[in-house]
Design a binder for these strands. Structure first.
Lengths: 155, 155
DNA sequence: TATTGTTATACTCTATAACTATA
DNA sequence: TATAGTTATAGAGTATAACAATA
């Protein structure tokens, strides 16, 4: 058996999260993409759809579809924007707010559970290490994006 | 600014990986799901489709679609199974094998890059911590599955 | 009878392009 | 002229169900 590399370990954990999340929503109107939108809304408060598109880094068209589904399920509503009549504010309903309160609590509990599974002397190093990996990954993604932009402008 | 929890950090890294991977395949016939299949094949050697379905934990129907796309792109071929005429062996073509060799090398390089970004004294704790988190997540997923199976059999 | 892979069908996530209403 | 959101269209991942060939 070959010792897994750091990347192997990170990918295993990422995959487990994706599976666990998808499983949790089975049989409901919720999906990972829709929960991501609700989570963003929970933290930002009511915002226009184009703001959500930027926050989630997806197309405005995609936001339309996600908000349609969440509105049909009763978790969000579209309201008139107070000053821009082109825009529509999306906000959580009471049911959506209750759902996000529960979700935030489960999120905190899962974080506690996972932290408890890590040896106390490893915890700080784990958090520092994850932050360092995230920073480096951000840099790599930015470099790739810059290289592609340069290639496009050259062609 | 609130200090992110362990779970927040893990989810950030998972999200960055997903984005980086999807970006890397833009404009090619490859996608994350297809690469996962190729990666599995690279490690297992030629296998029947139902074996791939189990390995990737997706439906046989899904494997049919993924193999169709990869066969059209020239990365895999379907061969007759030597003893079971119902089954079809999927194996990498020369082009597929070359692609996976390159991918394995890039994978190793990325792992090195990320490890280099972590302070040396934090590295072992990071790896131990990730293993502990993966083990605990596995347990939680198994518990959920068991609870659901019990609920189904009761109804 | 059970298994392997396929066709049929459907839902979701996602994107680009064209269009309407508004800024 | 530019922006916000929608309709139109399309590709991809995924699932279940029905079916043919084979075990």
């Amino acid at each position: 058996m070959i010792e897994p590399t750091l990347l192997d370990r990170l990918l295993v954990v990422a995959d487990l999260f994706a599976r666990d999340m998808a499983r949790a929503f089975e049989g409901t109107a919720l999906t990972t993409a829709r929960m991501t939108l609700l989570w963003s809304l929970h933290h930002s408060g009511p915002v226009a759809q184009h703001t959500l598109a930027e926050a989630l880094d997806v197309s405005p068209r995609n936001i339309t579809a996600l908000v349609d589904a969440l509105e049909a399920a009763g978790y969000v509503v579209r309201r008139a924007h107070p000053t821009d009549r082109r825009a529509r504010l999306v906000e959580l309903t009471a049911a959506g707010a209750r759902l996000m309160d529960r979700t935030a609590q489960e999120h905190a509990e899962l974080s506690e559970t996972l932290l408890a599974a890590v040896a106390p002397r490893d915890r700080e190093a784990l958090e520092r290490g994850l932050d360092a990996v995230a920073v480096r990954l951000h840099e790599l993604i930015a470099e790739h994006a810059a290289a592609e932009a340069a290639a496009r402008s050259a062609s």
